[in-house]
Amino acid sequence: MTQASETNAYNFAYLDEQTKRMIRRAILKGVAVPGYQVPFASREMPMPYGWGTGGVQVTAACLVPEDRLKVIDQGADDTTNAVSIRKFFQRTAGVAVTEATGEATVIQTRHRIPETPLTEGQILVYQVPIPEPLRFLEPRETETRKMHELEEYGLMHVKLYEDIARHGEIATSYAYPVKVEGRYVMDPSPIPKFDNPKLGDNAAIQLFGAGREQRIYAVPPYTQVVSLDFDDHPFVASKAPHDCDLCGAKGSYLDEVITDDAGSRMYVCSDTDFCTGRREAGHVGRLGVAMAGGVA
């Protein structure tokens, strides 16, 4: 088939073939230089920028008809954003969808890494609002690019150390900067720092797409990713000191939910598929009720 007749073909995964080629080339260069932000010509997508158009374009460039796609927003599969993106790819790529982390071949995420460990053959696509970890220290792109080139990351350490001086600890709890393979400092997107240890040595391919900022970057499988810290203040992947009130999980990242006007609160897994899976397996938390259907 020629390029001319391609334009008449079904627009698999929405984007035209030339755009997908451009994004695919950027993804491969990102994989070859882990943590480095590859510029790409972001396209208008039929959704607002805040909805993760960078991640959507990366997903569109990666999907094959045989994929099973999972989309999460802060750990949940059922938010408006997650549902819309899932429907978009069901319609434009005809792919199967799932909420089960273990069954998905491609997972697009906003602000979380699933609790269930990922496996080889899976791709995790992050929606990234601000890809440049040095941006809040230096607004000029030409300067931050120079800083990456020269590995001038001292300012980043100064910023984190000011946190310690002011708060007694590093206060940054989301989008906590990491260094990839000892070379590039990278913004892991606004995931909680609790998720940072899952970035490194992960069996899955991790791809990051920033639509408005037009950047793609990648962390290949089994890559070293280290959260920036200090000898006297080592990185801690902290979470709320509670168990999940629904499933009793001790080690999962929790959302705090206000349950009545008196300010009562409960803590529940932010990863809804993980929580549901545990409850279906019979685990019950402090405020949980046994799942219907006799599975306990």
């Binding site: 695919r24 491969l28 391919i205």
Partner: peptide, 15 residues
């Protein structure tokens, strides 16, 4: 013959 699907599968192999 079917560029969108075939190039998608080929890219996954390349990735």
């Amino acid at each position: 013959a079917k560029a969108p699907q075939q190039s998608a599968r080929a890219f996954r192999g390349l990735l």
